[in-house]
């Protein structure tokens, strides 16, 4: 396999605040290859946004301590100056933010915002930039793009706005698109449109995508590989098949077991994870999931690394349980809602 497009090694982002040090990201390692779609899933506050913003240098601040390596096409982004990062943002990596309204200026016409974004990074005249803008709106499936250019963000529906955001992100032909919850604010039918769009663009433009979401359904639809985050850490990472049909971490089991499914009748009762995520100011020592984990044992007071344990090659997790224990325990942990039963048979 060729060198990954983006490689993150043991990233940590700690913010000092009045209440103490917030360990927002506390050990994230990942790789993403050209054209690949990586899903990052985790609950609110688990550090998904901070981790992805940090890739673009957008969390740099006086109160932020950032350690670890982020290398993109062989360049180390953590060591790069702001000017260099700006160039990367213009030319290699683009991001779609969680809140589409905040990223579009309310008082400027959509077309002008696009033209400006194009001209920031490209030395092109107005006419060419406008033509390119129309082309981009067309590419993201906006009907009658010429007319839409003259509209203001509030005149667009949520789905249209998200398409415009995606068009903005594409102005610089990115090699990597980071999409932070691009469909969370949308209805399901619109979400389906946007997910289709992102998949099509990935195929046509050959770009890699990091898809951040709290919805395992979205992950199941689009991702090639998955990273599960909990309390600032990657607790499990593997292929889509590995995470869904051979999950190794009790938190992942809990997530999968607590899901409802639209294609299956109700089960007697949902498996639930007791308690709440820990504070990131003083996370429990040892395994961060320890005080919610039904399988906790003596070893769990030590902090587990993210490494290959019971899973197949390329599948890593942070849980001390022995592989056989995991196989037994996870079937009980899930009510059978998810494909854990299927996991007993070899993947087809």
């Amino acid at each position: 396999m060729s060198a990954p497009l983006l490689e993150i090694d043991d990233l940590r982002v700690h913010f000092s605040t009045d209440e103490g040090v917030v360990r927002a990201v506390d050990g994230v390692s990942l790789e993403i290859a050209e054209g690949e779609m990586l899903g990052i899933v985790g609950e609110s506050g688990s550090g998904k946004s901070v981790a992805s913003l940090t890739v673009l240098g957008l969390t740099r601040a006086a109160n932020a301590e950032i350690t670890g390596q982020i290398s993109f096409e062989g360049q180390d982004l953590t060591a790069m100056d702001d000017e260099g990062l700006r160039r990367i943002r213009g030319n290699g990596i683009a991001m779609i933010f969680q809140d589409p309204l905040s990223a579009l200026h309310p008082f400027y016409r959509v077309g002008n915002q696009l033209v400006e974004a194009i001209q920031v990074h490209r030395d092109v005249g107005d006419a060419d930039a406008r033509a390119r803008a129309v082309e981009l709106l067309e590419l993201v499936g906006i009907p009658d793009p010429g007319r839409r250019m003259g509209e203001y963000p509030h005149e667009l529906s949520g789905g249209m706005r998200q398409r415009v955001m995606i068009a903005m992100a594409l102005t610089n032909d990115p090699r990597l698109l980071i999409a932070d919850e691009p469909t969370t604010a949308l209805d399901v039918t619109t979400q389906a449109q946007i997910l289709r769009l992102i998949e099509r663009l990935r195929r046509e433009l050959g770009m890699a995508v990091i898809m951040i979401t709290h919805d395992l359904g979205v992950i199941a639809e689009v991702a090639d590989r998955v990273m599960v985050m909990y309390a600032g850490e990657a607790v499990e990472a593997g292929t889509l098949e590995q995470i869904f049909y051979d999950p190794q971490h009790p938190y992942t089991w809990g997530l999968l077991g607590s899901l409802t499914r639209v294609d299956q009748p109700r089960l007697a009762r949902l498996a639930q994870i007791a308690g709440q995520p820990p504070s990131l100011i003083n996370p429990p020592g040892g395994c961060h999931f320890r005080d919610r984990c039904p399988h906790e044992f003596a070893k769990c007071t030590e902090h587990p690394d993210l490494e290959r344990r019971g899973g197949d090659a390329g599948h890593r997790d942070r849980c001390w349980l022995a592989p056989d224990r995991k196989r037994e325990a996870r079937v009980i942990a899930s009510t059978g809602a998810i494909g854990l039963e299927a996991a007993k048979e070899p993947a087809s």
């Binding site: 529906s157 789905g159 249209m160 209805d187 399901v188 039918t189 619109t190 979400q191 389906a192 449109q193 997910l195 289709r196 919805d215 395992l216 359904g217 979205v218 992950i219 199941a220 639809e221 889509l240 098949e241 869904f244 049909y245 999968l256 899901l259 499914r261 639209v262 294609d263 998810i338 494909g339 299927a342």
Partner: peptide
């Protein structure tokens, strides 16, 4: 039918096996 088919199923194999209807346009 379209609404149901738009809901992602958290099971990659089941997801791949079904036919999805994607509605065009907005409400």
């Amino acid at each position: 039918e379209a609404l149901l088919s738009a809901v992602p199923i958290p099971d990659p194999r089941a997801n791949a096996a079904r036919r999805q209807i994607v509605l065009e346009g907005d409400v």
